[in-house]
Amino acid sequence: MTDLFQYVPGNTPLHRMNPITKILLTLSVCIAAFLTDNLFVLLFLLVFDLMIGVVAGAARKAFSIFRGLFKVSLFLFVLQALFVRRGNRLFWIITDEGLLTAASVVLRLLVVCLPLALVLTVTQVSDIANAMVQVLHVPYAYAFTLTTAIRFIPQFMEEMSGIMEAQTARGVEFDSQNFFKKLGMLLPLCAPLLISSVRRTGATATAAEVRGFDLRTRESGYKRYGFGLVDLAALLISAALITGAVLIP
């Protein structure tokens, strides 16, 4: 879980792509997923996601995210299938339209979540931020907030699992099956987690300040983020995905 958002170094076309292009591609997949109602288009997008995972050399990770989301998806599927009342009854209280809606909700979830996680596997957060500042002229302070927030996720997770371990050692049973009981046990742990996070954030801000945070301008970045053939291809694919989603009924 902790390595879900971790960057994995590599030299695939996706690694070399301009960070902005990668974000555009990700967004296009998401937009396409929300524009279409066609199950086959969604299915195609899902396959596309997994293929991207393969090209990025992160096939294992893509599939593990896929597996991780599977439980949530199943839960959502059942919920949707039970609550959608429209359409023809197939059996018990399940309708055909219910099943279709449920399937598209679940597919959409998968299609959207996968690339969001994958983009962080093939892109360093600092590159996203730098490119945003250089190419899109986003103010650096915002970019910094984004990078710090994302960089904190694994630290946060690590801290959380450390705290849970320490509490388990004291006899708190986190392996309880009851969801509410589990929630009740987790709540008291928020205090130590918050305290350590706030302390950390303050320290990070000071550390950035003594290394010239205030002096940074749009031109400061040493690395330049150019656009190449890969980027052009990715942009064309993005456009094709959205057009396809709109045109295919």
């Binding site: 705290i163 371990e165 320490a166 509490q167 050692a169 006899g171 008291p188 205090a191 130590p192």
Partner: peptide, 17 residues
């Protein structure tokens, strides 16, 4: 937990009240 007590390096992971 009745048998074995564990004191961690970082007390802040243990303290939650």
């Amino acid at each position: 937990a009745k048998q074995v007590g564990f004191l961690f390096q970082n007390p802040d992971r243990q303290i939650c009240q």
